[in-house]
Every structure is written in C-alpha cells, then in structure tokens.
Design a protein around this nucleic acid. Structure first.
Length: 472
DNA sequence: CTATGGCACGGATT
DNA sequence: AATCCGTGCCATAG
C-alpha cells in the first residue's frame, strides 16, 4: 500500500529510469553509440552479445527472437507496416551502393565525419596510391555544397599531372556518395546523378535534355518556356521538374533540397539516418518496413559472469559491485524503453503520415507533437525529445529530419509551390492567397509572402524574367 | 496606388 | 517559461 503512489502506468519505472530514458531518447544514433560505448567501458556488469542472424535475410533477430522480415510478412497486410529495431551495421548509406562489397561496416559507424573524409573512405579501395594526394586536394577544396569551384586545370598544374588524370579521378569521386560531389557546377552534379540513377531504374525521358539545355529555365521554374524548347507540353515539364526535385540534388552535400535557401543543415556534417523506411523487397504495394537503427550490433544484457562474481565477492567490493549491477540493469532497461518508445512512435507516425512518406510533401498531415503525445500516452516533451535531431530515410531515399513530420505549413507551401509553378503569369501574393483559399487553405496575404520566401520564390514582379541564381 | 518586406503582437506549440 | 508562427499595421519601393 505504500508503493501505490508511484506511478499509474504498468511500467515499474523509477524516476531515475525516467530521467535516463529521457536523455537517451534525445540522443540520435551516433550520440547513443558513444553513450553505450562509454557505459560499456565503465561498467563491467554490462555485456554486449551478438544476436543470431536470420539465415535468409541476415537481419538480427534480437528482441523477439524471430526474424521480422521473414516471418511477419505472411501475416501482414500491405497497410500494416513492419516495425523493428535493427542493428546499425546493416545500413547502407543512401542505398546507392556504388560498389557494395567495398564498404566495411566499421567505416560507417564513424559517421558523421566531414565530407572529404567520408568520400575518401569510399573511393580509397579503388584509388591508385599516387592519386591519393590528388584526391585529397580535390576533396578538401569542395565548398559547402559539395561542389568543386576550382578549375580542374589549376589542380592539374599544381600537381604536374595531365588533365585527363584529374578528370578521371573526378569522375570517380562523383560516383561516390553523395552522388555528384566534386562536380564543378550544379548542372554537372545533376547529370552525374541522373546517369547513376539510370543504371538502377527508369528516369524521366526529358531529364537529360532539360538539365543540359534548360538548366537556367529550370531553376527559374519557367516551365512553359522550357516546354517550348523541349517540345513538350507544360504539364509534362512540371512532371519532369517534380521528378528532378524528387530524385536529384544540385548541391550534393546538402541532404535534401527544396529548402535550399533555408540552409538548415549543419554544413560539413553528414547525416546518418536513425530510422529507415523502405518497402519490403523494394517493390511497390508491399508493406512498409520501418527499421529503427540501433547503433550497436546485437543487444545489451547483464553479464552473467559478473552476477556470479558478485555472489562471492570480497567484502569490501560488494557495495561498489552492486552499484555497477544496478546501474547496468537500469541502463539496459532504459535502452529497451527507448527502443520501445521509438517503435510505438513510428507506428503512429507511419499510420498518420503514410501518404506523406509514400507520395511526398504535398500529403503531409499537419500533426502536432501534442496530439501524438496523447496517442502514445506519454508526456509531450517525451515526443519532443524523441523526434528532435533524428533523421529518417524515406523509401524514395531522401533523408529528412523527423521534425519535418510536424511541419504545419509544409502542405500549404507545396501547394503554393505548385500554384506558382503552374501560373501563366506571375501572381501577386494577394492573388495567390485567394487561390489557396479556393484550395482549402485559408492563409493571409502576409503569410503567403512568408512562405514564398521560405521556398525561395521571388516576388511576382521579379519572377517574370529576372533569374535568381540557385545559390545562396 | 499596389505589392512587399519589417516589426511586433497574441496565441499556439514545445 | 521560452519559442515559433500567423497576422495585422506601417513604411517603403516601384
């Protein structure tokens, strides 16, 4: 009867548990990894065990003891996502997999690292020894966007090597992840990406020509004019533009584009997703697979040997050992709690934002963290912590921050973008506001202006011919 | 006079 | 309690 006061929930969480779970939630993959490592090093009671791997798909069978991918699908309808926690090492960055065999998983666990090192690691294998300094030179000369602004000839001259060799090297670099790095212009980067993309799937038929001949029109969103040049209807050009902005990125170092002008991503750092959403077997109409990447292989548990040792421990050590044990138990629980929370979070997230995940920005539901909190029956701040600083890789391979799932204005902003893309002549903000209202988005004129600038769209007057360069 | 961007306020969100 | 976001008002540019 004394214990009653503690908690109304089923979970026997002490406040200490709670506090630690909170902190763990807040960490993203990389930070969590460090945390676990230090904990592992400091606490002999803690032990990391390798789990069995599923013979057919190779995934960890960690918590449930069954393979989520091989055993679940039979019982699962396409609407029901498969959600599980999966060890980090299975993650293939960007899934472009330039040369799949050559990427030892330990390399990636060091992420995020800076861009030059990141790229260098990838190409190191196929790099001739004497090309290394050359590559290093090129990579360190990249700007924030991942583009090489230095003339190639200069590099060649500096190292006294033929131009062709530098060019070959650059081609190599361009094909590393992020595809297109080391190009000298956004245009070139797009072309390389297109080429790579074409190897794995269909690309838009006009894409190449549009980039080649109509780059400038493309960046101005002058779709009509572009259509004339390409000999395609404007509607087709819009589809093309959508294709390009979905799949290609003129600034390879930026994780996603669309908010090119926001410059929100921390420069130089590479974002490794903490969550991976894909389709089973990559085929459409199959269930979504949501993997919560856990930064360590296998699972953590209390070292049984330590427990034994504690039983007949020397008198003076008992206390400190017991403390270790408690700490370890709690830590393990907290990790599990964290995973559990993440899984539940993603379940709801996928249910609510299914269309957004599959079909793009336009279908983002305006959800607030608070709403999610009541569904999950956790405190709002818990949700807040859980979503902050985490990145998700969507089925279309774009990486977005988890906060984006809560962006209340994204839906309207894409509507606005479409509207402007389709406009015959530049519309004033007031007109746009009116159109948006018709579409069911009541927004004030002033707000339209704000959204416009967020999207990097020029005011009506300047939209007609004055081109604004894509850069900042 | 119209279209925009800046500043600031109030309500919602975190 | 701190912050973010949509809006209204006003100054300014065209």
């Amino acid at each position: 009867m004394i214990l009653q006061t503690q908690s109304h929930s089923l979970r026997p969480l002490t406040t200490a548990h709670l506090a630690q779970t909170m902190t763990l939630l807040e960490l993203n993959g990389e930070q969590l990894r460090q945390k676990i490592e230090s904990e592992l090093a400091a606490n002999p009671a803690l032990e990391q065990v390798d789990d069995h791997h599923c013979p057919s798909c190779g995934r960890s069978q960690s918590t449930a003891g069954i393979c989520p991918l091989c055993s679940h699908p039979r019982e699962v309808t396409p609407e029901q996502p498969i959600i599980f926690v999966s060890p980090y090492s299975e993650f293939v960055p960007g899934e472009y997999r330039p040369s799949a065999e050559e990427t030892p998983s330990e390399e990636w666990s060091a992420l995020p690292e800076d861009l030059p090192a990141y790229v260098l690691h990838q190409i190191a294998g196929e790099l001739a020894e004497e090309d290394r300094p050359l590559a290093a030179h090129i990579l360190t000369s990249l700007d924030d966007d991942g583009l090489l602004r230095l003339p190639i000839s200069e590099i060649a001259r500096y190292h006294h090597v033929p131009l062709g060799r530098v060019q070959r090297l650059i081609v190599q670099i361009q094909h590393a992840e992020p595809v297109g790095v080391g190009s000298s212009t956004p245009q070139e980067a797009l072309l390389v990406q297109l080429e790579v993309l074409a190897e794995t799937g269909p690309v838009h038929p006009f894409a190449r020509r549009a980039i080649l001949e109509g780059m400038e029109l493309l960046s101005r969103r002058a779709y009509h004019e572009l259509g004339r040049i390409l000999g395609a209807p404007t509607a087709e050009v819009q589809r093309l533009a959508a294709f390009i902005s979905e799949n290609l990125n003129p600034y390879p170092a930026r994780a996603h584009w669309g908010d090119i002008h926001a410059g929100a991503d921390s420069p130089h750092l590479f974002i490794t997703p903490d969550i991976l959403i894909s389709r089973l077997n990559d085929s459409p109409n199959s269930p979504l697979v949501v993997e919560i990447l856990s930064p360590f292989a296998g699972s953590l548990r209390i070292n049984p040997l330590f427990r034994e040792a504690l039983a007949n421990a020397p008198e003076e050590k008992i206390e400190s050992w017991q403390e270790h044990l408690d700490q370890a138990t709690q830590f393990v629980k907290c990790i599990q709690q964290r995973n559990h929370t993440m899984v539940r979070l993603m379940q709801i997230m996928v249910r609510l934002q299914r269309r957004f995940i599959l079909e793009g920005d336009a279908y983002l539901m305006p959800i607030t963290r608070a709403q999610l909190a009541v569904e999950l029956d956790v405190h709002e701040s818990t949700v807040s912590r859980a979503v902050s600083g985490k990145a998700v890789q969507l089925p279309n391979r774009r990486i977005v921050m988890l906060d984006k799932f809560f962006d209340r204005s994204l839906q309207i902003r894409t509507a606005l973008r479409d509207l402007i893309a389709q406009e015959k002549r530049p519309m004033s903000d007031t007109e746009i506001a009116k159109k948006l209202l018709q579409l069911g988005y009541p927004v004030a004129r002033r707000t339209v202006a704000k959204y416009r600038s967020m999207e990097g769209i020029l005011p009506a007057r300047l939209r007609h011919n004055g081109a604004k360069p894509l850069s900042t």
